[in-house]
Design a protein around this nucleic acid. Sequence first.
DNA 1: TTAGATGCAAATAGTTTGCATTTGT
DNA 2: ACAAATGCAAACTATTTGCATCTAA
Lengths: 144, 144
Amino acid sequence: MKDLSNRAKRLRDAGYKLTNARLTVLDVLEHHSGHMTSSEILEAVATIDPNVGRASVFRTLDLLTRLAIIRPTYIDGSMTPNYVLLPDGHHHHIVCIRCNRVIEFDDCGLSALEHQLEKTYDVVISGHLLEFYALCVACQDSAQ
Amino acid sequence: MKDLSNRAKRLRDAGYKLTNARLTVLDVLEHHSGHMTSSEILEAVATIDPNVGRASVFRTLDLLTRLAIIRPTYIDGSMTPNYVLLPDGHHHHIVCIRCNRVIEFDDCGLSALEHQLEKTYDVVISGHLLEFYALCVACQDSAQ
DNA sequence: TTAGATGCAAATAGTTTGCATTTGT
DNA sequence: ACAAATGCAAACTATTTGCATCTAA
């Protein structure tokens, strides 16, 4: 039995079985920093364990999204989503609107806003995603 | 000739032709508050002008995304993105992780962070999207 | 006038489903 | 033991492409 990551424990604690398919998908996501498309995930999973079915990968991605462990987001203008882990429930990046380069950053200082929103709308917030759209250094130079 | 919305002007100023297909898509988005899936957009466009082709709608959605006029985002766990207008370049909402209800809010107080990021990473920011994931009032009650 | 954009229909790719079988607890 | 989850392959759906034609500037 593998030792469990925190995220695996969250799965288990939410009442889901820790199956091979689920642990493999989590493993792939946790050993890759940054964003992954579903195709990349499918490919990586197949490399580790060819027995894991396509459908289970998608089912797991849905599940992880519902548990706010990952979040799908659009990065490169294609229809395929990129999945990002939401460590500590949040994630932040800057996407270049020209070349789609992604810059990730940590600080967001949103906890004050978070508390205010919880009071105003009577919700219990578990995470967030903050995306900025910008021109990166390189793309500022090469004039449009 | 219709009178042009600000967003239409942004298209024109960026060097794109103001074609019927593009103006129709913009019109649909601007006369609908909140989020729209691509299917909803396709349907609404077809109602207004059945001559506009499916492909042009998708091409326009891509274009508007690249210009940071709209932003695709995942709301309901399906693979189909929901497009939101980014008025003044930004948009904020809270999505219930249980029932997918969306609460939109205005204030985000991110301009300080925005300026700081521009300096730190040497980028020129044109907009942002901020999503919170939460349990809404209704879903807090109906226990897991 | 003419580069850019379109509409169409066919091709592609990504995702979901139904179901018999397997597996975690 | 047994509900939950899986793998498979087929079905679906959303999106993209190629190209001849059209049109905004």
